[in-house]
Amino acid sequence: MKLKILPPHLRNKKRYLAFEVISETSINRDDVISIIWGALWDMYGSCGISQFDLWVIKIWNYDTSKKHVMKGILRCRREEVHSVRSIIPTITRFKGSRVVFHTLGISGSIHSAIKKFIYDKH
């Protein structure tokens, strides 16, 4: 039987971090997840990661002929948003090719994160 959902005041407060990825070679959703987890592992280890409540919500692909661009939304705990944001600039390479992550913005809901940072800035 599924657990009954917690009342709102007992749930973890979440923040949604919109990001973009620019890479030299084409990458997919799984690659993005493994890049983020690798960087988190290097910086904070398993103890730190366990506090973040991290989840990659969705990834959009905006590849052009010149460069490979993806955008996505990452969920984390409200109290840890600064720590999660600090790993974004540490990502520099994936499988020998150069890659860079930029934070587009932070929002309180998936809907507003998509509206403000994913579709608006495209």
Partner: peptide
């Protein structure tokens, strides 16, 4: 030296926390 080494100011501010 390349666009892959540039980051937004707010990301850098978050990194300096380390």
């Amino acid at each position: 030296h390349s666009i892959f080494e540039l980051h937004t100011p707010h990301d850098i501010i978050a990194l300096t926390n380390c």
